[in-house]
Amino acid sequence: MAKHHVSATVNNDPVEFLCETDQTLLDCLRDELNLTGAKEGCSSGDCGACSVTINGRLVCSCLVLGVEANGMKIETIEGMAQGDKLHPLQQKFLEHAALQCGICTPGVLIAAKALLAKNPNPTETETRYWLAGNLCRCTGYDKIIRAVMDAASEMRKGA
């Protein structure tokens, strides 16, 4: 079967790729565009390791088809740092040791950034419920929640 031609914007860069009808956006990012920052933990929408945003909306890229990305603005973990300046969330994750193995980290960071875009001053409970779609098996979430709230507070000061 002929592949589909998709044009999209990824991390502000125009991209084009060919994909199969049933290929997920996650697979397109990883296999066609070599952006392996988004991870596959389940491919069923349960772990959030594949989190990206499409036109600003947080999605599991394993549940989106590559063809659906046509004309969309996609942001992935690879676009989060600006030059050599880490995003405050990235910085706080390092300072708080909010990652152990780090496989969940790209997804958690993308989800946390989407949270702070909507709600710059989340409570602990709001943060926990927002991140409930991002599984982390290593940390017990304690340091993740602290890092997100600390980053939020720093970003509020900066804003």
Partner: peptide, 14 residues
């Protein structure tokens, strides 16, 4: 750390 918060770190499937 930096590689792990930027998506650069290469895990098994990467």
């Amino acid at each position: 750390g930096a590689d792990k918060v930027t998506g650069r770190a290469k895990f098994g499937a990467d």
